[in-house]
Design a binder for these strands. Sequence first.
DNA 1: AACAGAACCAACCGCGGTCGC
DNA 2: CGCGACCGCGGTTGGTTCTGT
Length: 334
Amino acid sequence: MGRAPCCDKANMKKGPWSPEEDAKLKEYLEKQGTGGNWIALPQKAGLKRCGKSCRLRWLNYLRPNIKHGEFSDDEDRIICSLYANIGSRWSVIAAQLPGRTDNDIKNYWNTKLKKKLMGVMNPIAQRKPQQAALFSSLLQASSLPSSPSTLLSSSSSSSFTCSNNSYYSNLARSFTDPISFSSSPVSTSSFATASMLHPQETFVGPMQNDQVKDSLIMFGGEASCSSSDGSCNNQMSHVKEEYEYSGGTNNNNEQMGLQNYPYNGVEDGQKLMVSSGAAAHGVLNGWIEKQNGLWPGDNPLDHSLEEIKQLISTSSCNSFLFDENKTGEKVMYY
DNA sequence: AACAGAACCAACCGCGGTCGC
DNA sequence: CGCGACCGCGGTTGGTTCTGT
């Protein structure tokens, strides 16, 4: 019954690997391979290490063609784009970056890239042009549609799936308090909702009340999606309610067409809050403002979605496929 | 120069899915 | 079919290095 015990942990060495151990492991793996069994490997290789530890050491450090050091701008964009799409699935992201390990990318994201992005968010509210441009670039790198209305009008209500909705909430999570969201499940359970804030509504967040002007539009992650097929139709009612609350008009149809949702009518100077569900608890994330008819991601000088796709498609791994039919935007499968 | 705090990153831990018995 | 080991993943920890005072 069952397999043999894994390893005697009491006799296993832990902590940093010595050069001698590295050499032993590398030599063994280059000659013998894993043999499909990491657990038995350390004994065969003469190492007092757990098989899991050996595997990790090999994958993250000893494996050939591992790339260490600075991440390039293109790598940054790919990471941002994929994180916005699929969340913290580091192994999947790593598959798009040859030579990078999931651990490496995870560390890079947690220690540098996330801060880089978060550092951009506050100045956005303060309208510092240079950083706003960077934010714009990152939004575009994240395959953000040219405007919220693009996202919304491209989806019929019945096909308003989590794949679409995770898009904003995952992006929002990129900018949000890691304590609040780092442990949140990713794309399939998150949902971006939207609401028009009533001008008189009390609003607690980083912005001062006097900054909250008429017709603020809020995007935010919302409760988890419970349906087994990944669809979030139950959440549509939430959107609908908030829309009704906002005083807007809708067609009273259960399958309210999202094109009726008032993002198309957003005017210059109105702001979009990229946020998460925790906004209700006072955790906000940042603001983007429509100016001259454009959202930050509209800058025609920025990388297009096609360029991002190209970047990804020309990388070594072809496990990703864009499903153009589902959203016309950015649902990815692997 | 010494210390404190921040940043970095390798390694560990625990969980969920898979598979062998 | 059920149990339990194995595998791979993402989150977290803790030691080391860097930076500022």
